[in-house]
Amino acid sequence: MATKMVGFVWAFLIIIGIIYALLSGNISAINDSILTNANKALELFLNILPIIVLWTGILKIAEGSGLLDKFSSLLKPGLSKLFPSVPKDNKALGYISSNIVANMLGLGSAATPAGLKAMQELQTINHKKDEASAAMITFLVLNTAGVTIIPTTILALRIAYNSSSPSIIIIPAILATASSSIAGLTLDYYIRKRNK
């Protein structure tokens, strides 16, 4: 379902682009674009590859030493306040906090498995199995508006294009993402209250 949707958007971009170029007589630009843009993809890939490798290596140390677990257990007490319908000893809270920590550190590949497990746990305490529970929605808001402290791919690309200060965007990005999390959670809170 999710990849199908991405497929529609993908097709939309290609179809609009080619048809508009045909109509406006700009089609030779598209011809050149098709022939050269796979090389651009390789260039982009090579630009972000080394830092992803480096960063997953560093974070593996944090995982192996138990630092990630420690970090996520610090989040747990605050989390149970956000999820009043989830029992405090439920496994879901553990998965949710690992998901948030992984997202924070820019470890997307570890965030998704933890997130999917959290959804499974939340489903076991859900009353209507085909309907999203309030806790699930709160989790998704927290997840998608989540704070990324180290945006590795962005930093890598900024370096590749010779930025004079690649990491200067970190603090404004954290502030923007924090505001979006707070806004999302506040709206979620009010909807939950009204639905009670």
Binding site: M1, A2, M5, V6, N103, T112, G115, L116, M119, Q120, Q123, K128, K129, D130, E131, A132, M136, I137, L140, V141, N143, T144, A145, G146, T148, P151, I154, I169, I170, A173, I174, A176, T177, S180, I191
Partner: peptide, 26 residues
């Protein structure tokens, strides 16, 4: 790029993984 996520994609992926069709206000 740093401050938001693939919201629509993640919601679709997570809910379809546990076969939830009514996503309400998510």
């Amino acid at each position: 790029q740093g401050c938001t996520d693939t919201t629509i994609y993640v919601i679709a992926l997570y809910f379809s993984s546990i076969k939830i069709s009514k996503t309400k206000y998510a």
